[in-house]
Protein backbone atom coordinates (compact mmCIF):
# COMPACT_ATOMS: atom_id res chain seq x y z
CA UNK A 1 0.00 0.00 0.00
CA UNK A 2 2.88 2.33 0.77
CA UNK A 3 0.89 4.81 2.83
CA UNK A 4 2.33 5.74 6.18
CA UNK A 5 0.36 7.86 8.58
CA UNK A 6 1.79 11.30 9.17
CA UNK A 7 -0.33 13.75 11.04
CA UNK A 8 2.06 16.69 10.95
CA UNK A 9 0.40 18.37 8.00
CA UNK A 10 -2.89 18.23 9.82
CA UNK A 11 -1.51 19.57 13.11
CA UNK A 12 0.22 22.42 11.30
CA UNK A 13 -3.11 23.47 9.87
CA UNK A 14 -5.12 22.61 12.94
CA UNK A 15 -6.01 26.23 13.68
CA UNK A 16 -7.35 26.49 10.15
CA UNK A 17 -9.61 23.53 10.89
CA UNK A 18 -10.65 25.04 14.20
CA UNK A 19 -11.60 28.37 12.66
CA UNK A 20 -13.60 26.38 10.13
CA UNK A 21 -15.33 24.59 12.98
CA UNK A 22 -16.04 27.93 14.65
CA UNK A 23 -17.66 29.17 11.45
CA UNK A 24 -19.69 25.94 11.20
CA UNK A 25 -20.95 26.50 14.73
CA UNK A 26 -21.70 30.14 14.00
CA UNK A 27 -23.68 29.26 10.89
CA UNK A 28 -25.54 26.59 12.83
CA UNK A 29 -26.42 28.78 15.79
CA UNK A 30 -27.77 31.67 13.73
CA UNK A 31 -29.69 29.45 11.35
CA UNK A 32 -31.18 27.34 14.12
CA UNK A 33 -32.26 30.40 16.10
CA UNK A 34 -33.99 31.91 13.08
CA UNK A 35 -35.35 28.49 12.20
CA UNK A 36 -36.71 28.07 15.70
CA UNK A 37 -38.74 31.25 15.40
CA UNK A 38 -40.04 30.16 12.00
CA UNK A 39 -40.69 26.66 13.30
CA UNK A 40 -42.61 27.85 16.34
CA UNK A 41 -44.86 30.08 14.24
CA UNK A 42 -45.40 27.24 11.79
CA UNK A 43 -46.18 24.84 14.62
CA UNK A 44 -48.86 27.13 15.98
CA UNK A 45 -50.24 27.47 12.45
CA UNK A 46 -50.19 23.70 11.91
CA UNK A 47 -52.13 23.04 15.10
CA UNK A 48 -54.63 25.82 14.66
CA UNK A 49 -58.24 25.17 13.80
CA UNK A 50 -58.50 27.49 10.82
CA UNK A 51 -57.67 26.02 7.44
CA UNK A 52 -56.23 29.33 6.19
CA UNK A 53 -53.47 28.91 8.74
CA UNK A 54 -52.88 25.19 8.35
CA UNK A 55 -52.63 24.90 4.60
CA UNK A 56 -49.79 27.28 3.74
CA UNK A 57 -47.84 26.06 6.77
CA UNK A 58 -48.30 22.45 5.74
CA UNK A 59 -47.27 23.32 2.18
CA UNK A 60 -44.09 25.01 3.42
CA UNK A 61 -43.14 22.07 5.59
CA UNK A 62 -43.93 19.40 3.00
CA UNK A 63 -42.09 21.16 0.18
CA UNK A 64 -38.93 22.02 2.12
CA UNK A 65 -38.65 18.61 3.76
CA UNK A 66 -38.71 16.88 0.40
CA UNK A 67 -35.99 19.02 -1.19
CA UNK A 68 -32.26 18.35 -0.98
CA UNK A 69 -30.45 21.15 0.86
CA UNK A 70 -27.81 21.37 -1.85
CA UNK A 71 -30.43 22.23 -4.45
CA UNK A 72 -31.74 25.00 -2.19
CA UNK A 73 -28.22 26.32 -1.56
CA UNK A 74 -27.35 26.45 -5.25
CA UNK A 75 -30.74 27.94 -6.09
CA UNK A 76 -30.41 30.79 -3.59
CA UNK A 77 -26.79 31.56 -4.43
CA UNK A 78 -26.86 31.17 -8.22
CA UNK A 79 -30.46 31.57 -9.34
CA UNK A 80 -31.96 34.20 -7.04
CA UNK A 81 -29.55 36.91 -8.26
CA UNK A 82 -31.44 36.66 -11.57
CA UNK A 83 -34.46 38.01 -9.74
CA UNK A 84 -32.40 40.75 -8.22
CA UNK A 85 -31.74 39.13 -4.83
CA UNK A 86 -27.99 38.95 -4.62
CA UNK A 87 -26.67 37.69 -1.30
CA UNK A 88 -23.10 36.86 -0.36
CA UNK A 89 -22.12 33.25 0.28
CA UNK A 90 -22.55 33.27 4.03
CA UNK A 91 -25.88 35.09 3.99
CA UNK A 92 -27.16 32.79 1.24
CA UNK A 93 -26.30 29.75 3.25
CA UNK A 94 -27.77 31.09 6.48
CA UNK A 95 -30.97 31.92 4.61
CA UNK A 96 -31.21 28.39 3.26
CA UNK A 97 -30.37 26.65 6.52
CA UNK A 98 -32.81 28.87 8.43
CA UNK A 99 -35.63 28.06 6.04
CA UNK A 100 -34.67 24.36 6.15
CA UNK A 101 -34.42 24.34 9.96
CA UNK A 102 -37.79 26.05 10.18
CA UNK A 103 -39.46 23.15 8.37
CA UNK A 104 -37.87 20.48 10.56
CA UNK A 105 -38.28 22.36 13.83
CA UNK A 106 -41.92 22.98 12.92
CA UNK A 107 -42.51 19.23 13.07
CA UNK A 108 -40.69 18.92 16.40
CA UNK A 109 -42.65 21.78 17.92
CA UNK A 110 -45.92 20.55 16.47
CA UNK A 111 -45.50 17.20 18.20
CA UNK A 112 -44.68 19.08 21.39
CA UNK A 113 -47.79 21.26 21.14
CA UNK A 114 -50.00 18.23 20.56
CA UNK A 115 -48.69 16.66 23.75
CA UNK A 116 -49.98 19.47 25.93
CA UNK A 117 -53.39 18.79 27.49
CA UNK A 118 -56.22 20.98 26.21
CA UNK A 119 -57.30 21.68 29.76
CA UNK A 120 -54.41 24.07 30.24
CA UNK A 121 -55.59 26.41 27.49
CA UNK A 122 -59.07 26.35 28.98
CA UNK A 123 -57.73 27.12 32.44
CA UNK A 124 -55.83 30.08 31.02
CA UNK A 125 -58.90 31.36 29.21
CA UNK A 126 -61.00 31.05 32.32
CA UNK A 127 -58.71 33.40 34.26
CA UNK A 128 -58.97 35.92 31.43
CA UNK A 129 -55.68 35.48 29.60
CA UNK A 130 -55.66 36.15 25.87
CA UNK A 131 -54.71 33.46 23.37
CA UNK A 132 -51.37 35.13 22.79
CA UNK A 133 -50.58 35.31 26.50
CA UNK A 134 -51.56 31.69 26.97
CA UNK A 135 -49.27 30.64 24.15
CA UNK A 136 -46.35 32.62 25.46
CA UNK A 137 -46.59 32.01 29.19
CA UNK A 138 -48.14 28.59 29.45
CA UNK A 139 -47.88 26.57 26.29
CA UNK A 140 -44.47 27.47 24.89
CA UNK A 141 -42.52 26.88 28.14
CA UNK A 142 -44.22 23.52 28.72
CA UNK A 143 -43.77 22.46 25.15
CA UNK A 144 -40.10 23.30 25.23
CA UNK A 145 -39.52 20.88 28.09
CA UNK A 146 -41.41 18.14 26.29
CA UNK A 147 -39.51 18.43 23.03
CA UNK A 148 -35.96 18.64 24.35
CA UNK A 149 -35.00 15.06 23.39
CA UNK A 150 -36.10 15.27 19.76
CA UNK A 151 -34.97 18.90 19.61
CA UNK A 152 -31.51 17.71 20.57
CA UNK A 153 -31.23 15.27 17.69
CA UNK A 154 -32.67 17.80 15.22
CA UNK A 155 -30.15 20.44 16.29
CA UNK A 156 -27.26 18.00 15.91
CA UNK A 157 -28.53 17.08 12.46
CA UNK A 158 -28.78 20.73 11.42
CA UNK A 159 -25.25 21.38 12.70
CA UNK A 160 -23.96 18.61 10.43
CA UNK A 161 -25.81 20.19 7.51
CA UNK A 162 -23.54 23.24 7.78
CA UNK A 163 -20.97 21.11 5.92
CA UNK A 164 -22.94 21.82 2.74
CA UNK A 165 -21.74 25.41 2.84
CA UNK A 166 -18.50 23.97 1.52
CA UNK A 167 -20.24 23.52 -1.82
CA UNK A 168 -20.32 27.29 -2.28
CA UNK A 169 -16.83 27.77 -0.83
CA UNK A 170 -17.82 29.07 2.58
CA UNK A 171 -14.67 28.42 4.65
CA UNK A 172 -16.28 26.21 7.30
CA UNK A 173 -14.81 22.95 8.57
CA UNK A 174 -15.50 20.69 5.59
CA UNK A 175 -14.17 23.28 3.16
CA UNK A 176 -11.05 23.71 5.28
CA UNK A 177 -10.56 19.96 5.39
CA UNK A 178 -10.88 19.62 1.64
CA UNK A 179 -8.33 22.39 1.14
CA UNK A 180 -5.84 20.70 3.46
CA UNK A 181 -6.50 17.37 1.78
CA UNK A 182 -5.89 18.72 -1.69
CA UNK A 183 -2.76 20.63 -0.70
CA UNK A 184 -1.09 18.05 1.49
CA UNK A 185 -2.33 14.75 0.04
CA UNK A 186 -2.60 13.46 3.60
CA UNK A 187 -6.04 12.03 2.90
CA UNK A 188 -6.63 9.56 5.72
CA UNK A 189 -5.26 11.84 8.42
CA UNK A 190 -7.23 14.87 7.27
CA UNK A 191 -10.57 13.13 7.12
CA UNK A 192 -10.00 11.21 10.32
CA UNK A 193 -9.32 14.39 12.24
CA UNK A 194 -12.20 16.23 10.55
CA UNK A 195 -14.61 13.43 11.31
CA UNK A 196 -13.34 13.35 14.89
CA UNK A 197 -13.98 17.08 15.21
CA UNK A 198 -17.54 16.71 13.97
CA UNK A 199 -18.25 13.68 16.16
CA UNK A 200 -16.79 15.40 19.22
CA UNK A 201 -18.83 18.55 18.59
CA UNK A 202 -22.05 16.56 18.12
CA UNK A 203 -21.27 14.70 21.35
CA UNK A 204 -20.73 17.98 23.21
CA UNK A 205 -23.98 19.40 21.84
CA UNK A 206 -25.78 16.28 23.07
CA UNK A 207 -24.29 16.65 26.52
CA UNK A 208 -25.19 20.33 26.59
CA UNK A 209 -28.78 19.53 25.63
CA UNK A 210 -29.04 16.90 28.33
CA UNK A 211 -27.73 19.44 30.84
CA UNK A 212 -30.40 21.90 29.71
CA UNK A 213 -33.00 19.15 29.99
CA UNK A 214 -32.07 18.45 33.57
CA UNK A 215 -31.91 22.12 34.50
CA UNK A 216 -35.35 22.82 33.07
CA UNK A 217 -36.95 19.67 34.43
CA UNK A 218 -39.83 20.28 36.77
CA UNK A 219 -39.31 19.02 40.32
CA UNK A 220 -41.18 15.82 41.11
Amino acid sequence: MGYTLNFSAVWRNFDFLLSGLALSLGLAIISILIGAVIGLLLAFALTSKSRIAVMPAQAYVTIIRNLPILVLVLFVFFALPQLGFRLDKVRSFVLVLSVYSGAYLAEVFRAGLLSIPKGLTEAGLSIGLTSMQIRGSIIAPLMLRNVLPSLSSTIISLFKDTSLAAAIAVPELTFAARKINVESFRVIETWLVTSALYVATCFLIAILMRFVERRLALPR
Partner: peptide
Protein backbone atom coordinates in the same frame (compact mmCIF):
# COMPACT_ATOMS: atom_id res chain seq x y z
CA UNK B 1 -22.85 3.89 14.36
CA UNK B 2 -21.92 6.80 16.62
CA UNK B 3 -18.96 7.82 14.46
CA UNK B 4 -20.82 7.50 11.16
CA UNK B 5 -23.90 9.28 12.47
CA UNK B 6 -21.77 12.03 14.00
CA UNK B 7 -20.12 12.78 10.66
CA UNK B 8 -21.82 14.87 7.97
CA UNK B 9 -22.66 12.90 4.81
CA UNK B 10 -20.62 15.27 2.66
CA UNK B 11 -17.54 14.51 4.75
CA UNK B 12 -18.19 10.76 4.30
CA UNK B 13 -18.52 11.24 0.55
CA UNK B 14 -15.36 13.33 0.24
CA UNK B 15 -13.41 11.01 2.53
CA UNK B 16 -14.51 7.96 0.59
CA UNK B 17 -13.56 9.60 -2.69
CA UNK B 18 -10.12 10.85 -1.67
CA UNK B 19 -9.09 8.01 0.62
CA UNK B 20 -10.06 5.24 -1.77
CA UNK B 21 -7.85 6.60 -4.53
CA UNK B 22 -4.99 7.24 -2.10
CA UNK B 23 -4.96 3.69 -0.75
CA UNK B 24 -5.01 2.25 -4.23
Amino acid sequence: TDIIRGTPVLVLVLASYYVSSAVG
